Simulated assay, not measured.
Amino acid sequence: MTFVPPEIAVEARNIVKRFDGDVAVDGIDLSISRGSIFGILGPNGAGKTTTLRMLLGIIDPDEGERFLLGSPDPISRAHKVGYLPEERGLYQSMKAYDAIAFMGALRGLPLAEGRERGRQMMEDHGLGDAADKQIRQLSKGMAQTVQLLGTIVHEPELIILDEPFSGLDALNQGKLERLIRAQADKGVTVIFSTHVIAHAERLCEEIAIVAHGKIPFMGKVSTARDRLRPQVHLETRNLDGPWRSAIPAECQPLGHNWHFTLPESGVEPLLRALIEGDAGIQSLSIERPGLHDAFVSIAGEAVAKKMEEDAARDQTEEAA
C-alpha cells in the first residue's frame, strides 16, 4: 500500500489524462501540505481544471495515482471537501440561505443546520438582507458569494476553488481573498486555480505553474522569484569614471539613468565602486523580480501573453 505522509493534503504522482487521443495532462506531480494556500497558475486550456477534477475523483487519470486527504479514493473523502467549480450554477428560484443549506446537504450536513449556518454566514458577510431573496434577484457578485459560502458551510478540511476570481470585480475579489485567508487561518487547506498572477503572488506561499499539460515549476513563490537576479535602477551625476567597470559593459545610460541586473558579487562591491569612483549617486534602488517575471522565465513569453489575454477577457466580460 502506498504511504502518504499525514502532513500532505493532496498528492499526485505522474498523472496523465487524454481526451480523444489528445493529452490534456501530461505526467503531473503535485504535493500540497495541509493548512497551506496553494495556487495552480496557468492560462486557460493549460490543464488546470482537468487536474483538479482528477484530484477530486470527478474523473480518473489514465495513468498515475492521486491521493486526497490520505486516500487513493477521493470520492470517499468528499464530505471533507468543499469544491467550487469553474462553471457556476445555482437554482435561480431557490432562496439564498436555502441554496447554501442545499450545497451543505450534498456533503452530509443536516438541512436544518445548513439553513441556520447559511443565514448566519450571510449576516457575517454583510448579506443578511439578501438571505431570503431568490438567487435570480441577487447581483452576480452576491450570487457568487452565496455559492462560495455553500462550498464551505459544512466546514471542510480541504477547499478547492477553480478560477474563483473569474468574473468578480475588484471589490469582490478582495472579499474572496480575505475569506481564503480566514479559512487558512483555521488550518483549512485551500487550493485554487487562476490565470491572474497577482492573486497567486498575494495569497500563496507555494504554487504550481501549469503549461501545456505539464508543471515546469512547483515550489515556493520566493524560490520562483529567486531564479532571476534583482534589477538595479541607478541615477548618477557623472557619466564616466573608474566606477563604470562595476556596471555591465553592455549597459548604456538613458540620460543619467542606468538599468541593469545586479552583478553576482552583490550590492556592496557595486556601491563601494560607485562611491570611491565618484559616480555622484543621485538615486539607487534594487528591485527584486516579481512573480510575473519569474513566470515568463519559467513558462515562456507565449504562455504569459495567453495569461494576459485571459485576464483581459475576464475584465471585458465583467464590464458587460
Rank of each mutant, 00 (worst) to 15 (best):
G42T: 01
G82L: 07
M1Y: 09
R66F: 08
C251H: 10
P156F: 05
R119H: 07
G82F: 03
L106R: 00
G89K: 05
S283P: 02
S93F: 14
E155F: 15
L168S: 08
G167I: 03
Y83F: 14
N14F: 13
Q137W: 07
T189M: 08
L239I: 14
I59S: 08
D129V: 07
D278M: 11
A96E: 07
L291V: 07
E301L: 10
E157M: 10
A170C: 09
K220T: 13
F260P: 03
A311S: 15
H259P: 00
A170R: 12
I197K: 02
K133D: 06
S139T: 06
L176P: 01
M122C: 01
L41Y: 01
D98W: 13
L106G: 15
P156K: 02
P74F: 05
M54H: 01
A249Y: 13
T189N: 03
F260M: 05
L161E: 02
E276W: 13
A99L: 12
A200P: 08
E63M: 10
F67V: 09
I281L: 10
F217M: 10
I275P: 10
R88T: 05
W243A: 02
S36T: 05
D22F: 14
I58R: 11
T194H: 05
E317R: 15
E250Q: 14
C251W: 02
P230G: 01
A311C: 12
R229H: 08
F217I: 07
E250V: 11
S166N: 11
L30F: 00
K175V: 03
I40K: 00
Q147R: 00
Q147N: 05
G118K: 04
R202Y: 13
S36C: 04
A311V: 04
V296T: 08
P216N: 00
G47D: 06
V196T: 14
G167F: 06
Q315D: 15
E235W: 13
E206Q: 15
G126K: 01
S76R: 14
I159G: 03
D169S: 02
P43F: 07
G42V: 04
E155H: 15
P248H: 06
E250S: 10
K80R: 11
I247V: 11
R34A: 11
G108R: 01
V267K: 09
D240V: 11
D314E: 05
G150Q: 08
A96H: 00
A182N: 08
I159Y: 01
R66M: 11
E206N: 15
A9S: 05
D310K: 02
D314G: 04
D124T: 12
K80Y: 04
G47I: 01
